[in-house]
């Protein structure tokens, strides 16, 4: 049986929103507008996506799935790009990275018979993979800029000893990847102990048995784990090159901005 939340109780969610709102008001955090706006916006977005998904689920999978995936990847690309606006070709690099990752993960899910090619399964699962990869890529871009700034002296020292940009960036790229992957590894370590993962919670609430819910959760968690690592590596390996010119000279962020 499909369980539903009555509409009137949904309106009572306003009580939950009042808690942060009251705190913000009392301590004059200057967040009142943000709290109201993000609640309204979030609600509108979710209902909108609900309507779109209902419509998409009725379409032929071969039409609906690529359509929705394209929208998700484009939005994710625009979002992740913000973290590395100064770098050249960042949009296309993220876009191609996300497409590659989605294709790989989709091929594995379908090939190993983990999910079927229906919008109900492909879209939410892909959404989680794309969303997490987007965050990882943004994190890598941000971290990379600060690592290149902080390690400038060491990189110059390596170049002056005859290192190529790839050799000179080794330490920097390693530190960037470390920073991007650690939260991901920690998350996997404590999965199910600290909080029940979202997808599993959703399935259990929807009436699916916990064991089946766990199977799905395992597929998605491991998929996220590997795609996040892959997206971090792809974007690192593409973007570090732009910190150098063709003469193996290290550029500053200002010089990179100018040259792009």
């Amino acid at each position: 049986m499909e369980r539903d939340i009555p509409t009137y109780s949904l309106f009572l969610l306003i009580v939950f929103v009042m808690i942060p709102f009251t705190i913000a008001y009392y301590y004059q955090l200057g967040l009142k507008k943000d709290i109201i706006w993000s609640t309204v916006r979030g609600t509108a977005q979710l209902f909108l996506i609900g309507i779109i998904l209902t419509y998409l689920f009725e379409l032929e999978p071969i039409v609906g799935i690529p359509l929705m995936l394209s929208v998700m990847i484009t939005v994710a690309t625009f979002h992740a790009r913000k973290k590395g606006k100064e770098l050249p070709h960042v949009f296309i690099s993220i876009l191609l990275g996300l497409i590659t990752i989605e294709l790989i993960v989709l091929a594995m899910w379908l090939g190993f018979g983990m999910i079927s090619f229906t919008p109900e399964e492909v879209i939410p699962m892909s959404g989680m993979v794309i969303g997490n990869s987007m965050v990882a890529m943004g994190l890598v871009l941000e971290r990379m800029k600060s690592e290149f700034e902080q390690s400038r002296g060491k990189i110059l020292a390596a170049l002056s000893l005859g290192a190529t940009p790839s050799q000179a960036s080794h330490i920097t790229v390693r530190k960037t990847l470390n920073a991007a992957l650690i939260p991901n590894i920690d998350q996997l370590k404590t999965i199910g102990l600290v909080q029940l993962p979202g997808m599993m919670t959703g399935l259990i609430l929807g009436g699916v048995s916990p064991i089946v819910a766990i199977k799905y959760q395992l597929v998605i968690s491991i998929s996220i784990f590997s795609t996040v690592s892959l997206s971090a590596i792809i974007i690192s390996l593409i973007m570090y090159r732009y910190f150098y010119n063709n003469q193996m000279q290290l550029l500053t962020l200002e010089e990179i901005k100018k040259s792009s």
């Binding site: 002296g153 060491k154 020292a157 002056s160 000893l161 005859g162 330490i171």
Partner: peptide
């Protein structure tokens, strides 16, 4: 070749910047 040149003409920077 740039790596060979930098090997042959070595530079010691103002700050040591040692690798970990």
């Amino acid at each position: 070749s740039i790596p060979t040149l930098r090997k042959e003409v070595g530079l010691v920077l103002q700050e040591p910047h040692l690798f970990p």
